[in-house]
């Protein structure tokens, strides 16, 4: 089974608006998810340039799927869904 890759945008806007907290996810990962997720802090992914700044912080999962307004809970939920999908 492939690991889920989670890229956290650490561009300054994302970082200020919540990525700093997302960076703590890796260390606080629930036991059952350990070893199944790969975290990476990325330089600005360039997604925050819309007028409303609405989406920051952004997270990219498995290389293509983007989570806007990412919170630790939302990211964890997505990881769980993806892992369950792979189990099917």
């Amino acid at each position: 089974m492939d690991k889920v890759t989670v890229e956290i945008c650490c561009g300054t806007a994302c970082y200020l608006l919540g990525a700093a907290r997302l960076m703590e996810l890796e260390a606080n990962l629930p036991e059952e998810l350990k070893g199944k997720v790969e975290f990476e802090a990325k330089a600005c992914l360039g997604m925050c340039n819309d007028d409303r700044l609405g989406g920051a912080p952004y997270v990219r999962v498995n290389g293509s799927e983007v989570i806007a307004n990412a919170t630790p809970d939302a990211v964890l939920a997505r990881i769980r869904t993806l892992l369950e999908m792979e189990d099917l």
Binding site: G11, T12, Y15, C48
Partner: peptide, 17 residues
């Protein structure tokens, strides 16, 4: 730091890069 961060973010300056 917050205000500095705001200047950097607004001017698209990415510290990591």
């Amino acid at each position: 730091f917050e205000e500095l961060g705001a200047i950097l973010a607004a001017r698209d300056i990415d510290v990591m890069s």
